[in-house]
């Protein structure tokens, strides 16, 4: 597997070169009792790219994102965002990032406008009224602004959650299952917005997803996690070629069901040497 930590230079993650990367992770490990949720993973993310974390349930996606956000403290290893050690100096960079997840909510009794106003304040935004109006217009939630957040449908809540995540125009956007439980139309709309945001803002997006079509469409690069370890890391096309498959879903299923690590290694070697992948 390629170790792109070399891009950080000889000084490692604490050096200036590492600060150029929105995300740099080295030997990141999280152990809960007898369970190793994340097992010595290392990667850096290039600015302006969209990277997908793929993996089955319990593969370590949410734990990895949580460690990037500072919600979970790593057992070992290092996690840096824009060069800041998240475990110690998260507040140096917290205003440059944001996140959305279906596992957290916003206060249900507050209206959408009230919630967005509060979060604008928390992210230190001075032009609150203008920014909330703009983001509401952009995400087509203007009509929802004075409705209670708890009264919204799942699709509307997702859009409001995305509005909160984009309020501070983050340079790093972390998304955990951004289209979970949405109908195909709404999910597609969200993907378009994310794609446009990443492109126009030059933002870096890290998303965890089970939706392979979403990943194929959005991601420049895919990191596949299995039992807390990185088992694949590369552009979607490279993975498709390596496994000789048509879709990422087929690749994912093959990875999930295999027990032959030698074949996996051979697949990667085939791509790297330009030979035919194994059947």
């Amino acid at each position: 597997m390629r170790d792109n930590l070399a891009k950080c230079g000889s000084e490692g993650l604490s050096g200036e070169a590492a600060a150029a990367f929105p995300v740099a992770v080295r030997d990141l490990t999280k152990v809960y009792g007898a369970v190793t949720a994340v097992d010595r993973i290392s990667f850096v993310i290039e600015p302006g790219t969209t990277v997908a974390l793929l993996g089955g349930n319990g593969a370590g996606k949410t734990t990895t994102i949580s460690m990037l956000l500072g919600l979970v403290v790593p057992t070992a290893g290092e996690v840096r965002v824009f060069g800041a050690d998240v475990s110690r100096d998260r507040y140096q960079v917290a205003h440059r990032m944001n996140f959305q997840s279906p596992y957290v909510d916003m206060p249900m009794r507050l209206t959408v406008r009230q919630n967005l106003t509060v979060y604008a304040g928390l992210y230190g935004i001075a032009n609150v009224t203008e920014r909330v109006a703009y983001i509401a217009g952009d995400l087509q939630i203007t009509a929802l602004l004075d409705r209670r957040t708890g009264k919204l449908s799942a699709g509307q809540k997702t859009r409001v959650g995305l509005a909160k995540a984009l309020l501070n125009a983050p340079e790093l956007l972390l998304l955990d299952e951004p289209t979970a439980s949405l109908d195909p139309d709404t999910a597609d709309w969200i993907r378009q917005k994310l794609q446009a945001y990443g492109r126009e803002r030059g933002a870096t997006i890290l998303l965890a997803s089970h939706n392979m079509a979403e990943v194929e469409r959005l991601a420049h690069r895919v990191i596949v996690l299995e039992a807390g370890r990185i088992v694949e890391d590369g552009p979607p096309k490279q993975l498709l070629k390596a496994y000789g498959r048509q879709t990422l879903e087929e690749v994912f299923l093959q990875i999930a069901r295999r027990n032959d690590m030698g074949r996996h290694a051979a697949a990667i070697a085939a791509v790297e040497t330009g030979t035919e992948p194994p059947p």
Binding site: Y91, Q92, A94, H95, P107, R109, L110, T111, Q114, T117, V118, Y119, A120, G121, L122, Y123, G124, I125, A126, N127, E130, R131, A133, Y134, I135, L167, N168, A169
Partner: peptide, 28 residues
């Protein structure tokens, strides 16, 4: 309309964050 974000480390920013949260409870 891009967000106008000041120095996140200063006292003004801190008061803004505290104020935002107080506002949240008042809304409630």
């Amino acid at each position: 309309v891009l967000p106008v974000i000041g120095d996140p480390g200063g006292m003004e920013a801190s008061l803004r964050r505290i104020g935002a949260l107080v506002r949240r409870y008042l809304y409630l």
